[in-house]
């Protein structure tokens, strides 16, 4: 039987990341995702959870991050949510990718990677939570 869905709730710290990475790998294997599709899935979750943990709770309060993954016929649908401060990651300016080595700034690439590698993405604020939905190509060669 193919595992088609996973739904995980995490505290807003990175202690659960290794377990989450392992679960995503098992999920990707069960769903027969290609190495590229698996990498994109891991990347989207990793970047999102790190951003939420690093910037969503500046007062240090405990919070909850949700990671939901569902496999459709030709896509992987990802819903990432957190109860951190309101923040739409897709309003962040795109990094300058054309600069020379000296001009390139260190950092700011996470959201750019997710936005570029996803087929579609959306943000909404709902019931006190930031909710990001992403659609990733399932058959990325």
């Amino acid at each position: 039987m193919t595992l088609r869905e996973m739904d995980v709730r995490l505290p807003n710290d990175l202690s659960q990341m290794p377990a989450l990475v392992a679960r995503l790998d098992s999920f990707a294997e069960a769903a027969d995702l290609s190495p590229k599709a698996t990498h994109r899935l891991q990347l989207a979750v990793d970047e999102f959870v790190n951003n939420a943990v690093d910037y969503g709770y500046p007062d240090g309060r405990p919070g909850e991050i949700g990671v939901q993954v569902r496999c459709a016929d030709d896509s992987v649908e990802l819903t990432l949510s957190d109860d951190g401060d309101p923040f739409d990651p897709f309003t962040a300016p795109s990094p300058d990718l054309d600069g020379t080595l000296d001009e390139r700034r260190i950092g700011g690439l996470g959201v750019h990677l997710i936005r570029t590698l996803a087929r579609s993405f959306a943000y909404r604020r709902e019931n006190g939570r930031n909710v990001v939905t992403l659609s990733l190509a399932r058959d990325a060669a």
């Binding site: 990498h39 990347l43 990793d46 790190n50 950092g107 700011g108 690439l109 990677l113």
Partner: peptide, 8 residues
């Protein structure tokens, strides 16, 4: 695997 933290 590499993320933006690795690219940095």
């Amino acid at each position: 695997y590499i993320s933006s933290a690795g690219l940095r």
